[in-house]
Amino acid sequence: MHKFQKGNKKAFEELYKRYSNRIYAYFMRLFNNDQQRAQDFTQDAFIKVIDKKLSFDTKRKFQPWLFTIATYMARTSFRDEKLTEDVSDHENKNPYQPDQDLSNIKSLVRNNLHVLSYAQKSVFILRIYHDLSVKEVADIMNCSEGTVKSRMYHATQNLASQIRQIEAHGVDTNKTHYGKGI
């Protein structure tokens, strides 16, 4: 990033190669596998990196800074659409995905992240999928480490509850209404 700040475009290309798919995956999970939206946000995130390169502190790591930009963009988007913190809205809007494998918790979690609030989802994705430390997540989310742990606790609680509910209802599409989208 320091080289990119000096005007080295090759350095940016290297950063892009290294982090673009990670940011894309982050947005995909945040937006419940909405590809088009995730692509747009990924593109915008890297445009912000280009625009704000001089504001980056080279003493810090690049990845948390990039995730901070991405998280801020997503939070703004959720606020604009009044979708933040309202879990009940998602449950009724999102169609069920018939390809869910009930025996595979990995797949169940991936397809049911929408049951989490924005804050819980962001923390869970950063902590579990991207393997960031509690402190790094707290810095990105601009909150305390205790809050990160609390959100993680409720995220796992909600996901476990959702999985139990799916298992209880089986794969009957008429009884459950979960799926992708916001």
């Binding site: 894309y24 590809q35 579990i128 999928y129 476990a160």
Partner: peptide, 18 residues
Amino acid sequence: LRRSVIVETAQDNDTPSL
């Protein structure tokens, strides 16, 4: 169940390509 949610999700490395 909650432990398996954490452990198995951490092993989910399926990242889509941009």
